[in-house]
């Protein structure tokens, strides 16, 4: 048995209000000076506590308490009256529910608007839309010569580049996982149409098919217009 075991078991005995050491503990205390001393101190404490706990002070509280009691009850009663809420009408619950729902909807609307403004705070008129309008206006000219065809093709390439640039901006804004090196606009330059790649880079890949289909359909429309005009 260790000294820690001895102390723990002695404390357990005292928890059960036992004051005699069993044989095993007694044997340990006989051979261990520290534990013997500890047991002596605890016994002294028990002895002192016996005198302390039997002393009962005399006091008469009934008069003082009963004297304060009516005042105390009156105060409590008044407090209860003050804090008592008026009875609710049957419709009040429904009105509260309706108001809560309206508040929630307004909050959601405000939150959505703030979120929308934050995402597209710097959004400018769509370059793709401008290019598309330009393409439509050029197409409406109904070109009849090769020079006009070159103008149309140039417009189509501009539109392609603008669409690609626009798609890139949207991807950069929404995809926070893009590495910093990818954040540079791939179509920047004086002549965006000149830098349109044959295949789109990785972040734009999901948009590539859609972009090509769109531009191809515009080009087809341009050629059809040219054919019909010539």
């Amino acid at each position: 048995m260790t000294c820690l075991d001895f102390e723990n078991r002695v404390q357990e005995l005292l928890d059960l209000r036992q004051t005699e050491l069993p044989g095993e503990l007694s044997a340990h205390a006989t051979h261990c000076a520290e534990c013997h001393k500890l047991w002596g101190h605890l016994q002294q404490l028990q002895h002192s506590v016996a005198a302390w706990q039997t002393w009962s002070p005399t006091v008469t509280l009934a008069d003082a308490v009963l004297q304060r009691l009516p005042v105390d009850f009156e105060t409590t009663a008044n407090r209860q009256i003050v804090t008592t809420r008026p009875a609710c009408s049957p419709l009040s619950g429904f009105v509260v529910l309706l108001a809560s729902a309206a508040t929630l909807l307004i909050a959601l609307g405000i939150g959505w608007r703030i979120s929308s403004n934050a995402t597209y705070a710097n959004r400018q008129p769509s370059a793709a839309a401008l290019a598309a309008n330009h393409l439509v206006s050029v197409t409406a000219l109904a070109p009849a010569a090769d020079r006009q065809l070159d103008v149309l093709l140039h417009g189509a390439r501009d539109a392609y580049a603008a669409l690609a640039s626009q798609a890139w901006q949207e991807v950069s804004t929404t995809n926070v996982l893009l590495p910093p090196t990818d954040s540079a606009a791939p179509f920047s330059g004086d002549d965006p149409a000149a830098s349109v790649p044959e295949t789109l880079s990785r972040p734009l890949a999901p948009y590539g098919r859609e972009l090509r289909d769109t531009v191809d359909s515009w080009l087809l429309q341009v050629f059809q217009n040219q054919d019909s005009s010539t």
């Binding site: 009962s56 002070p57 006091v59 008469t60 509280l61 009934a62 308490v65 009963l66 009691l69």
Partner: peptide
């Protein structure tokens, strides 16, 4: 009932006061 209230206090005042005093 005041008599019951008084008896209540008298019955437990030793216990409560003893605890508070110690």
């Amino acid at each position: 009932k005041v008599a019951c209230q008084r008896q209540f206090v008298e019955q437990f005042e030793g216990m409560i006061f003893g605890l508070c005093l110690r």
